[in-house]
Every structure is written in structure tokens, then in C-alpha cells.
């Protein structure tokens, strides 16, 4: 195609009526600080999209964790509280109890939700706090530089299990989502991923369901997103997705554990 005619075609397509996808208005203009290819960005994006599509920007309160996503309040244009490490479910509990008409979600990594904050996680779910708990599981501590997480796989290397996780020394990887599905307070418990367009669409669907559950006061919705940490894993983003599918999914199988 000639240069001129190509420009003409582009101008013909690039019209508002032909718009298929553009950045959510609930996302701010701040460039995310995450490493290239980080799953956090995708989850943030679909979270913002869900908030925009449901028209709940003015009533959604997010609780950010400690970890790579500690500054996520810079990216999604809603009211935020940044909780101490592991305490997001306790912080969210109070907001939910004191402002029952609002929508509350927590966003935590594996160290935050499944190590230091295990008690808060389990008890918020067991009380059935009417909130959404998003759990990013990439099997490593990203922010502090790649240490072992509660969800690090057997044999998987990290800076604090440099020769691979050995259960005798390091304990076993924790399937906390399966555990949370046992609790009567949870209504939706699902494990998803965002490594392919189809996976992203499914995770977004789960999020929409979780927001709907909160509206219907169904209790706690838990969405785990098995994620990559290409810097921590020392791979390219594309390799990380492949490695995740081959190694993480067999131990952390995707799908719904509970949908009541």
C-alpha cells in the first residue's frame, strides 16, 4: 500500500464510531511503576474497567497492600486506603461495616495475603465480610527483590531459597484459595490468570461477578490471579507466561472453587 493511501485508510478507520478499545477513564494518566510485562498492570486495568462499566467510581473504596502494588492508588481514580503489610482485610472489614452502602475491595500479593496477613485473610472470609478480595499470586516477593513467598513452588528458586524451595527446609507452597473456599463466609472463590486475551476476559468476568455479589451482600468474593514476576523469575515477560502455564497452573489449577 502506498504511504498516502495508507494514511487515508487509517484516517477512515480512526473514528469514534469505530473505537473498539481505549484506556479506561477510571485509570489515571500516571505511568505505572511496574516492570515491563507485569501482571499487576493488567489486573489494575480490568479493575478500572469494571468500576467504569458498573458506574461505581463514586462509591468504591480500595485497600492497597504492601508490596509492588503499594502505590496502586496512583493509578485507579477512586478513594484509597493503603494498609499495613497483611492487614488489608481488617482495614476493609471496618470500611465495609461502617459504610455498608459502599463497595470495598482489597488487593494483596501472596506475601501480604498468605503469609503475614493469613489471620486477617481467613477471619475476614470466615466472617463473610461483604467485600472483594483480589489476590495476586506470583510465587515470589517482588518488591523486596525476589525472596521466597508462601506460594513459591517446590524447587522454584528465589533469593532466600537460592537452590530451589525444599519443603524440609522451607516448608510447602500454600494453596490458600482452596482453603478459603472451605469457609462459609465466602460466596465466590475462583482462580484465574491474565496471560492470554481469553484469560483476561475470564478474569474480568469474575470481577464483574464479584462486584455483583457485593451489591447483593453475598459475603466475601475471593479472586486469585496467578501472575508472573518476570524480574523476580529472571525471564522475559513472554517466557514468564509460558513458564507460569507449564509450572504454576499444574499446582495452582485455574477455575471456580465456589460460586454460590
Amino acid at each position: 500500500m502506498e504511504e498516502n493511501s495508507m494514511a487515508e485508510v487509517f484516517n477512515d478507520i480512526k473514528k469514534p464510531e469505530n473505537l473498539v478499545y481505549s484506556k479506561s477513564k477510571v485509570l489515571t494518566d500516571n505511568v505505572m511503576h511496574y516492570c515491563p510485562g507485569c501482571s499487576h498492570g493488567v489486573v489494575h486495568r480490568i479493575l478500572a474497567e469494571v468500576i467504569e462499566e458498573l458506574g461505581v467510581q463514586d462509591k468504591t473504596i480500595g485497600v492497597a497492600p504492601v508490596g509492588c502494588s503499594v502505590l496502586m492508588y496512583n493509578y485507579i481514580d477512586i478513594d484509597w486506603q493503603e494498609a499495613a503489610h497483611g492487614r488489608a482485610p481488617a482495614v476493609g472489614t471496618a470500611i465495609n461495616r461502617l459504610w455498608p452502602e459502599k463497595i470495598v475491595f482489597t488487593y494483596q500479593g501472596d506475601g501480604d495475603l498468605a503469609a503475614i496477613g493469613t489471620a486477617e485473610t481467613i477471619h475476614a472470609c470466615n466472617r463473610g465480610e461483604n467485600m472483594i478480595m483480589l489476590f495476586i499470586n506470583n510465587g515470589i516477593y517482588g518488591m523486596t527483590g525476589g525472596q521466597m513467598a508462601p506460594t513459591t513452588l517446590k524447587g522454584m528458586k528465589s533469593s532466600t531459597c537460592p537452590f530451589g524451595r525444599e519443603p524440609a527446609q522451607d516448608g510447602n507452597p500454600l494453596k490458600i484459595t482452596e482453603l478459603l473456599a472451605q469457609l462459609p463466609g465466602t460466596s465466590l472463590v475462583t482462580r484465574q490468570a491474565v496471560h492470554t486475551p481469553a484469560a483476561v476476559r475470564k478474569t474480568k468476568k469474575a470481577l464483574l461477578k464479584a462486584f455483583e455479589n457485593q451489591k447483593q451482600k453475598k459475603g466475601t468474593s475471593v479472586i486469585e490471579v496467578v501472575s508472573t514476576c518476570n524480574s523476580g523469575w529472571k525471564m522475559t515477560p513472554v517466557e514468564s507466561n509460558k513458564w507460569m502455564a507449564e509450572n504454576m497452573f499444574p499446582f495452582y489449577p485455574l477455575g471456580d472453587f465456589k460460586d454460590e
Binding site: M6, N18, V194
Partner: peptide
């Protein structure tokens, strides 16, 4: 390869930095 684009938006779906806008006609 612009000629091959079908505007499926798969690229924007996996983009962590929301930097892709997609049109289709």
C-alpha cells in the same frame, strides 16, 4: 504489518500499561 490487523483488541487485552487504542471497521 498494518494490513493484517483485524481490530480484535487482543493486544490491548494483555497490555499491562493500557497503551493500545484499537479501532475496527
Amino acid at each position: 504489518n498494518p494490513d493484517a490487523c483485524i481490530g480484535c483488541a487482543n493486544c490491548s487485552m494483555v497490555c499491562p500499561d493500557s497503551c493500545i487504542t484499537v479501532y475496527r471497521k
